[in-house]
Design a protein around this nucleic acid. Structure first.
Lengths: 189, 189
DNA sequence: TCCGCTAGAGACAGAAATGTATCATTCGTA
DNA sequence: TACGAATGATACATTTCTGTCTCTAGCGGA
């Protein structure tokens, strides 16, 4: 029973993530219809629309964190960690896409977790720069922006069956690592 | 008088573009306040909210078209055209950002123009692939997605005074051309 | 100074979205 | 079969947004 309840809730979250990523202003009834449930039922799970959005953000952040948090302890280099992060994040592109599209969320817990994950990503990028894998003359923030854009593009391509997850991940790696590797005169590692 | 009217209208369009790009669901009163005019005045310029969004889309598409249409007749190669397009588009990143964020627009004229410009961009990319500047084994659509993401990232960085327009454009060129240039075994031109 | 145009403010009605409550039904389980 | 939990449908009040209208004030030109 508990499992059924959980998976029903998860189904709602998945459905709403996709819908709200495409249309952040979708009404509660549209969200319910897209999930195939009644509006009243959706209200039973999420008291208000803001609660729903908050839960979606937290779920997205949690999923992403679970997918990449182990990498810190596993990877032997920043380059490897970057590669692993890309592979882990491409299938979660819908979550990242959602977070970039949903607009500002005032909830403190959400903003705190977003800030933390962003900081982790910047540190990873800086590590890769120190290792000479990424150009140190480009700001980590720019690289992070390119990274985010690439993941979203990759997921979009995946969602339309243009490429497989592996192909998408390899395209992201290539675009990022080749595009932002140190310039020839800087290369020495 | 006519000039004043036009520039007032342009001010409204500029303001609304920025606001709606950040928050596509902003209400009419929020748009009016952001522009510093009364709600009734905004209605005098744009009879309905949909009209406003339509005008914003058309203005964005027209501005982008005017910035790049001459390139076709000027550039001596696809590589040069790509470079010129990047330079022309980076300062218009707010328009592209707006169009990617506003969601689907049902207006036929808008969708037609968007389709046309998209097709032109894909042709440009295919030309660059034939010239060996971009990897022909990657789909033009993927490259276009990366291009769009890079322009938006660049504009975001510019808007926050992190980089100048020239620096941003050069970062986009580099990320795109290096990241998606043909792989070594493919290089022969 | 007077006239005409435009913008701002506010009232108003209609539409849509939000949130609450109730009731009948269904479905799994004892 | 009988019970309880969950769902769907529906009605309802409240709020927000939309679009229209009117009135007043400001501003430039004759």
């Amino acid at each position: 029973m508990a499992r059924t309840k959980t998976s029903a809730r998860q189904t709602l979250l998945d459905s709403a993530t996709v819908l709200l990523a495409e249309n952040p202003g979708a009404s509660f009834i549209e969200i319910a219809e897209a999930a195939g449930v009644g509006r009243a039922s959706l209200y039973r799970h999420f008291p208000t629309r803001d609660d729903l959005v908050r839960e979606l953000c937290l779920e997205a952040l949690k999923t992403m964190d679970e997918a990449v948090s182990h990498i810190y302890w596993t990877a032997k280099s920043s380059a490897e960690a970057l590669e692993m992060t890309i592979n882990a994040m491409v299938p979660l592109g819908d979550r990242l896409y959602f977070l970039t599209r949903i607009g500002e969320v005032t909830d403190k817990q959400v903003t705190k977790e977003m800030t933390r994950q962003n900081k982790d990503m910047l540190q990873l990028i800086e590590g890769a720069q120190k290792e000479g894998v990424l150009d140190a003359t480009v700001t980590p923030r720019w690289i992070n922006g390119v990274f985010t854009g690439l993941i979203c593009t990759a997921w979009d391509a995946m969602a339309q069956d243009q490429v497989s997850a592996n192909e998408a991940a390899s395209l992201v790696s290539r675009s990022l690592l080749k595009g932002l590797s140190p310039l020839p005169q800087d290369t020495l590692s």
